[in-house]
């Protein structure tokens, strides 16, 4: 898996080079936080106020940006800005829900496999390989298709697919940490296995794992948009950026804002999350911070 290798194989920078990189990293972190912060702000505001009710179809259809509809209306006469604001909520919920679900299941399974005996580990690894070989979207479509399409079904589907990837990464990281001398050293002073996991294993896998989870958040946002585009996400009147894209697609030359706006927001959120993931590495790992 290329993502996994890229993260694990990232070479350790030596001390001399850390300072300039450190600066650029904190810049990426700042830009990422601003981009994601804007989306989060919009989502929070949408909880209390939106310009029009989401199911209000009183406007003229396919209006260009202006007043009273700041960004115009869609083909049913609904306010576009309202839809986009609610869509931010859905996108963030999809990302956070999937990462939570995929993270918890994946880390638990990965820890178990990392500690397991050779035989059990082989079985779990084979299962994970099969699961990963299945395209995430196809797996998500299967889950979403077996029940009524909703935001929850999309999150469950994406989260399950993600858990396999997280589990495999966790397993490798755990195995690598367990092979280190300091685990044996800690055990010679009487640390029990559960404490070894809490005090040594989790903190040592977290820098790599958290970066990967942040990347997975961006992928989950994309996956939710794709599922919604295919009609397997949150049903109307809940607006999802993916469904908005699909609905506006036919009228792209008459009302281009309807396609451009949700597209831009998806890109902004995914890029923002990726920038945070990149900058996050330094924050999570003290050995990468500036040396004294």
């Amino acid at each position: 898996m290329s993502v996994e290798q890229a993260v694990i194989g990232a070479p350790e920078e030596d001390g001399a080079k850390t300072t300039p990189r450190h600066v650029s990293r904190s810049v990426t972190l700042t830009i990422g936080c601003v981009l994601v912060g804007v989306i989060v702000l919009v989502a929070v505001v949408s909880l209390f106020w939106v310009p029009f009710a989401p199911e209000d179809t009183s406007g003229r259809r396919l209006m260009p940006p202006g007043l009273p509809h700041l960004l115009g209306t869609d083909k049913l006469g609904r306010d576009l800005l309202t839809q986009l604001m609610i869509g931010a909520r859905i996108a963030l919920a999809a990302g956070a829900g999937s990462v939570l679900l995929g993270g918890v299941i994946g880390i638990a399974a990965g820890l178990a496999a990392g500690f397991a005996t050779r035989w059990l580990d082989d079985v779990v690894s084979a299962l994970l390989d099969i699961l990963i070989a299945f395209p995430t979207l196809l797996l998500a479509m299967l889950v979403a298709a077996t029940q009524a399409a909703s935001l929850t079904s999309a999150i469950v589907a994406i989260g399950l697919a993600m858990s396999a990837i997280v589990a495999r990464l966790t397993r490798v990281l755990v195995k690598r940490v367990l092979a280190q001398d300091f685990i044996t050293a800690s055990r010679t002073s009487g640390t029990s296995w559960p404490r070894v996991v809490i005090e040594h294993v989790l903190p040592n896998i977290w820098p790599t794992l958290s970066v990967n989870l942040a990347l997975q958040f961006g992928l989950a946002v994309l996956a939710e948009a794709s599922l919604s585009y295919l009609g397997l996400g949150a049903p109307p009147p809940n607006a999802s950026w993916g469904r908005m894209l699909q609905e506006a697609q036919a009228s792209v030359f008459i009302a281009p804002v309807g396609v451009i706006a949700p597209g831009v927001l998806i890109v902004v959120l995914v890029i923002g999350v990726n920038l945070i993931a990149d900058g996050f590495r330094d924050v999570a790992d003290p050995t990468r911070r500036r040396r004294r």
């Binding site: 001398d181 300091f182 050293a185 055990r187 010679t188 009487g190 903190p203 040592n204």
Partner: peptide, 23 residues
């Protein structure tokens, strides 16, 4: 586990790897 650290304990060869790098 009751004996480790109290009855006997170990100093290892390579101190860099015998200490948790993130603690």
């Amino acid at each position: 586990n009751r004996l480790r650290g109290r009855a006997a304990s170990v100093v290892f060869q390579e101190p860099l790897t015998a200490l948790d790098p993130l603690m």
